[in-house]
């Protein structure tokens, strides 16, 4: 998965720090990211060649967009229009304490598509917003570090099954269980609904 992260130029320190925090979250989640500051220079050659061969804008190659909209920029309206036209999952962020120009006010409320997530953020909540957005696009693409220790007693027959399932594979029994649970989480519509409501 590759995300395009658009950040208007600003000298405002808190926004620069917010940009850095978003990039840090993306990096931590092992998401390939292209920022507006680096543009095409940050892309692998084969991706640039493929876009050129198909005569497509590079934006077309992105799986999702994150736009920091606290500073007015004419590119923002264009990126939002492209994202809506192409149904690209897009997170539109604005700092809660900044009075920003809202380009979406020109769009009729009923025209706001589901692929567009609008969030105002605080310094403390920014990372959570970005992670929730990334999970909503493709949980499998995000690398979460298993950090919570959990002791689980299992029956000999379960253990036998896990031995059989992971025999001659590179997957450990613990990895296998984690992957199965991840799949259950992804497929559990009621839980996904619960996550959406609790955002």
């Amino acid at each position: 998965m590759r995300v395009y992260f658009f950040t208007p130029k600003t000298r405002e320190r808190k926004l620069v720090l917010a940009y850095e925090r978003v990039q840090s979250v993306l990096k931590g989640a092992s998401i390939d990211t292209t920022t507006s500051a680096e543009g095409a220079e940050g892309l692998p050659d084969d991706m640039i060649k493929a876009a050129e061969h198909r005569s497509e804008p590079l934006l077309e190659q992105m799986d999702a967009l994150i736009i920091e909209g606290s500073t007015a920029d004419p590119e923002i309206g264009y990126l939002l229009a492209f994202a809506i036209a192409r149904k690209k999952p897009t997170l539109y962020l604005t700092d809660r304490t900044t009075t920003s120009f809202n380009p979406l006010r020109y769009l009729p409320a009923k025209s706001l598509p589901k692929n567009l997530t609008l969030k105002t953020y605080t310094k403390e909540g920014l990372e959570g917003i970005v992670m929730t957005f990334l999970r909503s696009i493709d949980a499998g693409a995000i690398r979460e570090v298993p950090s919570i220790k959990f002791t689980l007693r299992i029956t000999p027959s379960i253990d036998k099954y896990l031995d059989w399932k992971t025999h001659n594979t590179d997957v450990t029994k613990a990895d296998f269980l984690r992957e199965e649970i991840d799949r259950m989480v992804k497929d559990d519509e009621r839980y996904q609904e619960f996550l959406r409501k609790s955002e």
Binding site: R54, E60, A81, F82, A85, R86
Partner: peptide, 19 residues
């Protein structure tokens, strides 16, 4: 060639140039 891109994206790009 462009069936993945759809008509709207082309028009969005053109509108940005018009502005």
């Amino acid at each position: 060639h462009f069936k993945g891109m759809e008509a709207k994206a082309n028009l969005v790009n053109a509108a940005q140039v018009a502005a």
